[in-house]
Amino acid sequence: MTARVLPVNWCTGVMDAAELEWIAWTTPITTSFGAALATSDLGGRTVACRQHITADTICILTPFVEAGVRVRLAPCNPDSTDDRAAAHLASIGVEVRARAGMSADELDESLAWLVSEPADALCDMGGDLIAAAAAAGHRPAGALEATTTGLHRLRGLAIPFPVLDWNGIALKELIHNRHHVGVETWPAFTAITGLALYGREVVVVGYGPVGQGVADSARDLGAVVTVVDLDPVRLVQARHAGCRVAEMTAALRTASVIVTATGFDGVLGERQLSQVAEGAILVNVGHSDREIDVAWLDRHPSTRVRRHLERYELDGRRVYLLNRGSLVNLAAGLGIGAPQLFDPFAAIMLLGLDAILSGQTADLPNGVQRYPHPLEARVARALATGSA
Protein backbone atom coordinates (compact mmCIF):
# COMPACT_ATOMS: atom_id res chain seq x y z
CA MET A 1 0.00 0.00 0.00
CA THR A 2 1.47 3.36 -1.01
CA ALA A 3 1.49 6.10 1.59
CA ARG A 4 -1.17 8.58 0.65
CA VAL A 5 -3.21 11.52 1.80
CA LEU A 6 -5.92 10.02 3.94
CA PRO A 7 -9.52 10.64 2.92
CA VAL A 8 -11.98 11.66 5.61
CA ASN A 9 -13.27 8.63 7.54
CA TRP A 10 -10.74 6.36 5.87
CA CYS A 11 -11.02 4.10 8.92
CA THR A 12 -13.97 3.44 11.17
CA GLY A 13 -14.43 5.27 14.42
CA VAL A 14 -13.27 8.81 13.65
CA MET A 15 -13.33 10.63 16.99
CA ASP A 16 -16.64 12.10 18.07
CA ALA A 17 -17.25 15.30 20.04
CA ALA A 18 -17.24 13.59 23.42
CA GLU A 19 -13.89 11.94 22.81
CA LEU A 20 -12.36 15.17 21.53
CA GLU A 21 -13.68 16.96 24.61
CA TRP A 22 -12.00 14.35 26.81
CA ILE A 23 -8.67 14.74 24.99
CA ALA A 24 -8.90 18.51 25.46
CA TRP A 25 -9.72 18.04 29.15
CA THR A 26 -6.66 15.82 29.66
CA THR A 27 -4.37 18.31 27.90
CA PRO A 28 -5.36 21.60 29.57
CA ILE A 29 -2.09 23.47 28.99
CA THR A 30 -1.92 22.82 25.25
CA THR A 31 -5.67 23.39 24.89
CA SER A 32 -5.45 26.76 26.64
CA PHE A 33 -2.51 28.03 24.59
CA GLY A 34 -4.11 26.59 21.46
CA ALA A 35 -7.35 28.49 22.02
CA ALA A 36 -5.42 31.77 21.96
CA LEU A 37 -3.40 30.74 18.90
CA ALA A 38 -6.53 29.74 16.99
CA THR A 39 -7.69 33.37 16.98
CA SER A 40 -4.52 34.49 15.18
CA ASP A 41 -4.35 35.21 11.47
CA LEU A 42 -1.62 32.93 10.11
CA GLY A 43 -3.17 32.49 6.69
CA GLY A 44 -0.77 31.75 3.85
CA ARG A 45 1.75 29.92 6.02
CA THR A 46 2.66 26.25 5.75
CA VAL A 47 3.89 23.92 8.47
CA ALA A 48 5.44 20.53 7.68
CA CYS A 49 5.49 18.03 10.55
CA ARG A 50 7.21 14.68 10.91
CA GLN A 51 6.37 13.32 14.33
CA HIS A 52 4.57 10.67 16.33
CA ILE A 53 0.88 10.90 15.47
CA THR A 54 -1.11 10.34 18.65
CA ALA A 55 -4.11 11.88 20.37
CA ASP A 56 -2.15 14.88 21.62
CA THR A 57 -1.16 15.71 18.02
CA ILE A 58 -4.78 16.83 17.57
CA CYS A 59 -4.32 19.45 20.31
CA ILE A 60 -1.11 20.71 18.71
CA LEU A 61 -2.22 21.01 15.09
CA THR A 62 -5.92 21.90 15.25
CA PRO A 63 -5.29 25.51 16.40
CA PHE A 64 -2.98 26.09 13.42
CA VAL A 65 -5.64 24.85 11.01
CA GLU A 66 -8.14 27.19 12.68
CA ALA A 67 -5.64 30.06 12.32
CA GLY A 68 -5.44 29.45 8.56
CA VAL A 69 -2.19 27.49 8.37
CA ARG A 70 -1.73 24.77 5.79
CA VAL A 71 -0.51 21.76 7.78
CA ARG A 72 1.20 18.75 6.20
CA LEU A 73 1.89 15.70 8.37
CA ALA A 74 3.82 12.45 8.12
CA PRO A 75 5.01 10.02 10.80
CA CYS A 76 8.55 9.85 12.17
CA ASN A 77 8.08 6.24 13.20
CA PRO A 78 6.22 3.42 11.42
CA ASP A 79 4.75 1.93 14.57
CA SER A 80 3.46 4.81 16.70
CA THR A 81 0.68 6.17 14.51
CA ASP A 82 -2.81 6.24 16.02
CA ASP A 83 -4.97 5.68 12.94
CA ARG A 84 -7.99 7.37 14.48
CA ALA A 85 -5.98 10.48 15.36
CA ALA A 86 -4.60 10.57 11.81
CA ALA A 87 -8.09 10.18 10.36
CA HIS A 88 -9.47 12.96 12.53
CA LEU A 89 -6.68 15.33 11.51
CA ALA A 90 -7.36 14.52 7.85
CA SER A 91 -11.05 15.25 8.43
CA ILE A 92 -10.30 18.83 9.60
CA GLY A 93 -8.04 19.62 6.67
CA VAL A 94 -4.57 18.47 7.67
CA GLU A 95 -2.79 16.83 4.73
CA VAL A 96 -1.78 13.46 6.16
CA ARG A 97 0.33 10.61 4.83
CA ALA A 98 0.37 8.08 7.62
CA ARG A 99 -1.01 4.80 8.85
CA ALA A 100 -0.01 2.37 11.56
CA GLY A 101 2.52 -0.20 10.42
CA MET A 102 3.83 1.63 7.36
CA SER A 103 6.65 -0.15 5.56
CA ALA A 104 10.12 1.37 5.37
CA ASP A 105 9.47 2.32 1.73
CA GLU A 106 6.19 4.01 2.66
CA LEU A 107 7.91 5.92 5.44
CA ASP A 108 10.58 7.13 2.99
CA GLU A 109 7.88 8.11 0.50
CA SER A 110 6.05 10.14 3.13
CA LEU A 111 9.26 12.03 3.95
CA ALA A 112 9.89 12.71 0.26
CA TRP A 113 6.31 13.98 -0.01
CA LEU A 114 6.85 16.40 2.89
CA VAL A 115 10.05 17.72 1.34
CA SER A 116 8.55 18.04 -2.15
CA GLU A 117 7.32 21.53 -1.22
CA PRO A 118 8.84 24.29 0.90
CA ALA A 119 7.31 25.20 4.26
CA ASP A 120 7.53 28.20 6.57
CA ALA A 121 8.17 26.05 9.64
CA LEU A 122 9.21 22.47 10.28
CA CYS A 123 8.35 20.28 13.25
CA ASP A 124 10.64 17.27 13.42
CA MET A 125 11.33 14.26 15.62
CA GLY A 126 14.48 12.49 14.54
CA GLY A 127 16.20 15.09 12.36
CA ASP A 128 15.35 13.48 9.01
CA LEU A 129 12.91 16.18 7.87
CA ILE A 130 15.29 18.99 8.78
CA ALA A 131 18.24 17.33 7.06
CA ALA A 132 16.19 16.53 3.94
CA ALA A 133 14.75 20.06 3.74
CA ALA A 134 18.23 21.56 4.01
CA ALA A 135 19.53 19.19 1.32
CA ALA A 136 16.61 20.17 -0.94
CA GLY A 137 17.56 23.84 -0.62
CA HIS A 138 14.51 24.86 1.42
CA ARG A 139 14.81 27.86 3.72
CA PRO A 140 12.01 27.79 6.30
CA ALA A 141 11.91 30.49 8.93
CA GLY A 142 12.81 27.85 11.50
CA ALA A 143 12.36 24.31 12.75
CA LEU A 144 11.81 22.36 15.96
CA GLU A 145 13.73 19.21 16.91
CA ALA A 146 12.62 17.04 19.81
CA THR A 147 15.01 14.11 20.12
CA THR A 148 18.55 13.13 21.05
CA THR A 149 18.62 10.97 17.91
CA GLY A 150 17.74 13.99 15.77
CA LEU A 151 20.45 16.12 17.32
CA HIS A 152 22.99 13.36 16.65
CA ARG A 153 21.91 13.27 12.99
CA LEU A 154 22.10 17.04 12.57
CA ARG A 155 25.52 17.37 14.20
CA GLY A 156 28.07 18.54 11.64
CA LEU A 157 25.47 19.44 8.99
CA ALA A 158 25.27 22.97 7.62
CA ILE A 159 21.64 23.83 8.35
CA PRO A 160 20.73 27.16 6.64
CA PHE A 161 17.96 28.05 9.10
CA PRO A 162 17.56 28.06 12.89
CA VAL A 163 16.58 24.80 14.59
CA LEU A 164 15.08 25.10 18.07
CA ASP A 165 16.30 22.22 20.22
CA TRP A 166 13.65 21.45 22.79
CA ASN A 167 15.07 18.05 23.66
CA GLY A 168 17.67 19.72 25.84
CA ILE A 169 15.42 22.07 27.78
CA ALA A 170 15.23 21.45 31.51
CA LEU A 171 11.50 20.77 31.46
CA LYS A 172 11.81 17.86 29.02
CA GLU A 173 15.01 16.47 30.47
CA LEU A 174 13.85 16.57 34.08
CA ILE A 175 10.24 15.53 33.57
CA HIS A 176 9.49 13.66 30.34
CA ASN A 177 12.83 11.99 29.67
CA ARG A 178 13.57 11.24 33.31
CA HIS A 179 10.14 10.02 34.43
CA HIS A 180 7.40 9.74 31.82
CA VAL A 181 9.06 7.29 29.43
CA GLY A 182 9.76 4.93 32.32
CA VAL A 183 6.20 5.26 33.58
CA GLU A 184 4.80 4.17 30.20
CA THR A 185 7.41 1.56 29.18
CA TRP A 186 6.55 -1.26 31.53
CA PRO A 187 2.75 -1.16 31.17
CA ALA A 188 3.37 -1.45 27.41
CA PHE A 189 5.76 -4.36 28.00
CA THR A 190 3.15 -6.19 30.07
CA ALA A 191 0.32 -5.41 27.63
CA ILE A 192 2.33 -6.90 24.77
CA THR A 193 3.92 -9.90 26.50
CA GLY A 194 1.53 -10.70 29.36
CA LEU A 195 4.60 -10.82 31.64
CA ALA A 196 5.43 -9.10 34.92
CA LEU A 197 8.95 -8.05 35.87
CA TYR A 198 9.19 -9.76 39.27
CA GLY A 199 12.60 -11.41 39.54
CA ARG A 200 13.54 -10.83 35.92
CA GLU A 201 17.03 -9.67 35.03
CA VAL A 202 16.60 -6.42 33.11
CA VAL A 203 19.55 -4.80 31.34
CA VAL A 204 19.21 -1.10 30.50
CA VAL A 205 21.66 0.02 27.82
CA GLY A 206 22.18 3.77 28.16
CA TYR A 207 21.76 5.53 31.50
CA GLY A 208 20.82 9.01 30.42
CA PRO A 209 17.59 10.53 31.73
CA VAL A 210 15.41 8.07 29.76
CA GLY A 211 17.42 5.05 30.86
CA GLN A 212 17.35 6.25 34.46
CA GLY A 213 13.57 6.43 34.48
CA VAL A 214 13.22 3.03 32.81
CA ALA A 215 15.62 1.45 35.31
CA ASP A 216 13.88 3.03 38.31
CA SER A 217 10.46 1.84 37.17
CA ALA A 218 11.74 -1.68 36.48
CA ARG A 219 13.32 -1.92 39.92
CA ASP A 220 10.11 -0.69 41.54
CA LEU A 221 8.27 -3.50 39.75
CA GLY A 222 10.57 -6.16 41.16
CA ALA A 223 13.20 -6.53 38.46
CA VAL A 224 16.92 -7.01 39.10
CA VAL A 225 18.39 -4.16 37.03
CA THR A 226 21.84 -3.99 35.43
CA VAL A 227 23.05 -0.87 33.63
CA VAL A 228 25.42 -0.72 30.66
CA ASP A 229 26.87 2.67 29.71
CA LEU A 230 30.13 3.94 28.22
CA ASP A 231 30.29 6.84 30.69
CA PRO A 232 31.87 5.76 33.99
CA VAL A 233 30.21 8.65 35.80
CA ARG A 234 26.79 7.29 34.82
CA LEU A 235 27.83 3.87 36.05
CA VAL A 236 28.63 5.37 39.45
CA GLN A 237 25.24 7.10 39.36
CA ALA A 238 23.55 3.77 38.56
CA ARG A 239 25.29 2.09 41.49
CA HIS A 240 24.04 4.84 43.80
CA ALA A 241 20.51 4.22 42.48
CA GLY A 242 20.71 0.57 43.50
CA CYS A 243 21.48 -0.92 40.08
CA ARG A 244 24.20 -3.36 39.17
CA VAL A 245 26.62 -2.32 36.42
CA ALA A 246 28.35 -4.49 33.84
CA GLU A 247 30.14 -4.52 30.52
CA MET A 248 27.86 -5.22 27.55
CA THR A 249 28.93 -8.80 26.78
CA ALA A 250 28.59 -10.01 30.35
CA ALA A 251 25.23 -8.29 30.79
CA LEU A 252 23.71 -9.75 27.62
CA ARG A 253 24.56 -13.34 28.51
CA THR A 254 22.23 -13.46 31.51
CA ALA A 255 19.57 -10.82 30.73
CA SER A 256 15.96 -11.86 30.29
CA VAL A 257 14.91 -8.36 29.15
CA ILE A 258 17.24 -5.92 27.31
CA VAL A 259 16.20 -2.29 26.87
CA THR A 260 18.06 0.17 24.63
CA ALA A 261 17.83 3.84 25.59
CA THR A 262 20.74 5.60 23.91
CA GLY A 263 19.45 7.60 20.95
CA PHE A 264 22.09 6.01 18.68
CA ASP A 265 21.63 3.55 15.81
CA GLY A 266 23.16 0.07 15.94
CA VAL A 267 23.56 -0.31 19.71
CA LEU A 268 22.56 -3.97 19.50
CA GLY A 269 24.10 -5.16 16.25
CA GLU A 270 25.05 -8.60 14.96
CA ARG A 271 27.87 -9.09 17.47
CA GLN A 272 25.72 -8.18 20.47
CA LEU A 273 22.62 -10.04 19.27
CA SER A 274 24.69 -13.17 18.76
CA GLN A 275 25.47 -13.13 22.49
CA VAL A 276 22.02 -12.69 24.03
CA ALA A 277 20.61 -15.44 26.19
CA GLU A 278 17.92 -17.94 25.20
CA GLY A 279 14.49 -16.35 25.57
CA ALA A 280 15.77 -12.79 25.85
CA ILE A 281 13.21 -10.07 25.11
CA LEU A 282 14.49 -7.03 23.17
CA VAL A 283 12.91 -3.64 23.84
CA ASN A 284 13.76 -0.15 22.60
CA VAL A 285 12.72 3.15 24.16
CA GLY A 286 15.11 5.43 22.24
CA HIS A 287 13.72 7.49 19.39
CA SER A 288 15.55 5.62 16.64
CA ASP A 289 13.91 2.38 15.50
CA ARG A 290 17.42 1.24 14.52
CA GLU A 291 19.00 1.01 17.96
CA ILE A 292 18.37 -2.73 17.60
CA ASP A 293 19.50 -4.15 14.23
CA VAL A 294 16.10 -5.42 13.13
CA ALA A 295 17.35 -5.86 9.55
CA TRP A 296 19.86 -8.44 10.78
CA LEU A 297 17.21 -10.19 12.88
CA ASP A 298 14.96 -10.36 9.83
CA ARG A 299 17.51 -12.57 8.07
CA HIS A 300 16.57 -15.32 10.52
CA PRO A 301 13.39 -17.43 10.79
CA SER A 302 10.70 -15.53 12.63
CA THR A 303 7.15 -15.99 13.90
CA ARG A 304 4.60 -13.36 14.87
CA VAL A 305 3.56 -14.48 18.33
CA ARG A 306 1.01 -11.76 18.99
CA ARG A 307 0.55 -8.09 18.18
CA HIS A 308 3.86 -6.20 18.56
CA LEU A 309 5.72 -9.42 19.49
CA GLU A 310 7.93 -11.50 17.18
CA ARG A 311 10.09 -14.55 17.90
CA TYR A 312 13.39 -15.10 16.06
CA GLU A 313 15.41 -18.30 15.83
CA LEU A 314 19.10 -17.43 16.18
CA ASP A 315 21.26 -20.55 15.89
CA GLY A 316 19.00 -22.54 18.15
CA ARG A 317 18.17 -19.68 20.53
CA ARG A 318 14.77 -18.03 20.70
CA VAL A 319 14.88 -14.23 20.96
CA TYR A 320 11.82 -11.99 21.15
CA LEU A 321 11.45 -8.47 19.73
CA LEU A 322 8.83 -5.94 20.81
CA ASN A 323 7.21 -3.45 18.41
CA ARG A 324 9.70 -4.04 15.58
CA GLY A 325 12.37 -2.19 17.55
CA SER A 326 10.35 1.03 17.69
CA LEU A 327 9.64 2.84 20.94
CA VAL A 328 7.64 0.38 22.96
CA ASN A 329 5.97 3.08 25.06
CA LEU A 330 4.36 4.41 21.87
CA ALA A 331 3.29 1.07 20.39
CA ALA A 332 0.02 1.79 18.62
CA GLY A 333 -3.27 0.37 19.81
CA LEU A 334 -2.36 -0.65 23.36
CA GLY A 335 -4.59 1.94 24.99
CA ILE A 336 -1.94 2.83 27.58
CA GLY A 337 -0.89 6.23 26.26
CA ALA A 338 -1.39 9.16 28.60
CA PRO A 339 -1.81 12.46 26.73
CA GLN A 340 -1.79 14.22 30.09
CA LEU A 341 1.89 13.33 30.55
CA PHE A 342 2.82 14.87 27.21
CA ASP A 343 0.61 17.93 27.64
CA PRO A 344 3.37 20.41 28.60
CA PHE A 345 5.56 19.20 25.76
CA ALA A 346 2.75 19.44 23.22
CA ALA A 347 2.45 23.03 24.44
CA ILE A 348 6.21 23.49 23.92
CA MET A 349 5.74 22.40 20.30
CA LEU A 350 2.70 24.61 19.78
CA LEU A 351 4.38 27.74 21.19
CA GLY A 352 7.60 27.03 19.29
CA LEU A 353 5.84 26.73 15.94
CA ASP A 354 3.83 29.86 16.68
CA ALA A 355 7.04 31.74 17.51
CA ILE A 356 8.60 30.70 14.19
CA LEU A 357 5.53 31.58 12.12
CA SER A 358 5.01 34.93 13.84
CA GLY A 359 8.62 36.04 13.37
CA GLN A 360 9.74 35.82 17.00
CA THR A 361 12.80 33.77 16.04
CA ALA A 362 13.80 35.82 12.99
CA ASP A 363 17.00 37.11 14.61
CA LEU A 364 18.34 33.70 15.59
CA PRO A 365 21.43 32.41 13.75
CA ASN A 366 21.30 29.33 11.56
CA GLY A 367 21.85 25.88 12.98
CA VAL A 368 20.81 24.29 16.24
CA GLN A 369 19.81 26.81 18.91
CA ARG A 370 18.38 26.46 22.38
CA TYR A 371 14.59 26.60 22.54
CA PRO A 372 13.66 30.09 23.84
CA HIS A 373 13.65 30.08 27.63
CA PRO A 374 10.70 32.53 27.95
CA LEU A 375 8.47 30.05 26.11
CA GLU A 376 9.65 27.17 28.28
CA ALA A 377 9.00 29.31 31.37
CA ARG A 378 5.41 29.99 30.22
CA VAL A 379 4.73 26.27 29.98
CA ALA A 380 6.50 25.47 33.23
CA ARG A 381 4.51 28.16 35.05
CA ALA A 382 1.28 26.74 33.69
CA LEU A 383 2.32 23.24 34.75
CA ALA A 384 3.32 24.38 38.23
CA THR A 385 0.23 26.52 38.88
CA GLY A 386 -2.35 24.55 36.95
CA SER A 387 -3.27 27.66 34.94
CA ALA A 388 -2.00 28.55 31.47
Rank of each mutant, 00 (worst) to 15 (best):
S274W: 01
E184F: 00
L252K: 09
A98W: 02
S110T: 11
I130C: 07
S116Q: 09
A250G: 15
G68N: 07
I175A: 02
D41E: 09
L107N: 12
D83V: 07
I53C: 03
G208W: 08
I60M: 06
A86D: 05
D124A: 08
G182M: 05
V202R: 00
L151H: 13
A191V: 05
T39N: 09
E106V: 10
E117N: 07
L330C: 04
L171R: 02
W25Y: 10
A238M: 08
Y207M: 08
A384T: 13
E376A: 12
D289T: 06
P75S: 09
R4T: 15
R45Y: 12
L107S: 14
Q275K: 14
H52D: 02
L221S: 11
E173F: 03
G208I: 11
Y198W: 11
S80Q: 02
W296C: 10
E145C: 08
V368L: 08
I192R: 01
A251W: 09
L129Y: 06
V224Q: 14
L235E: 14
P160F: 10
A67V: 07
N329Y: 08
G213K: 10
A141Q: 13
Q340A: 15
G194H: 03
R318N: 12
R381W: 01
P63L: 13
E201D: 15
A36M: 11
T81C: 08
V233W: 09
V259L: 07
A346M: 02
L171S: 12
V47L: 14
L157R: 15
D363G: 10
N9Q: 08
A90Y: 08
L73G: 07
K172M: 01
L321G: 07
L154N: 11
A38S: 15
P75I: 07
A74M: 03
A331D: 07
H176S: 15
A134H: 06
R271M: 11
P162M: 03
V5A: 07
A100R: 12
A346D: 01
Y198Q: 10
T27D: 00
D124F: 08
W10Y: 14
L157E: 02
L164M: 10
E184L: 15
A3G: 13
G269D: 12
A246G: 15
Y320G: 04
H138Y: 05
G44Y: 08
A119D: 03
V181R: 02
R311N: 01
T62F: 00
G68L: 04
L375H: 03
V181S: 03
A238V: 10
T2Q: 14
L351W: 06
R290N: 13
G386P: 10
A100L: 05
A170Y: 01
R311D: 00
V259W: 05
R84D: 01
I192H: 03
G213V: 12
T303A: 11
L20Q: 07
L321Y: 05
G325F: 04
A35H: 14
F342M: 13
D293G: 11
I169C: 09
W296I: 11
A158G: 04
V202A: 04
R70H: 12
C76K: 03
H240C: 14
H240M: 15
E270K: 15
G142N: 02
L107T: 14
A332V: 13
E145W: 04
I258C: 04
D265T: 10
A238D: 07
F189E: 03
S103H: 07
N284D: 05
S302E: 06
G211N: 08
R153W: 11
T254V: 15
E106N: 10
L61W: 04
M15T: 04
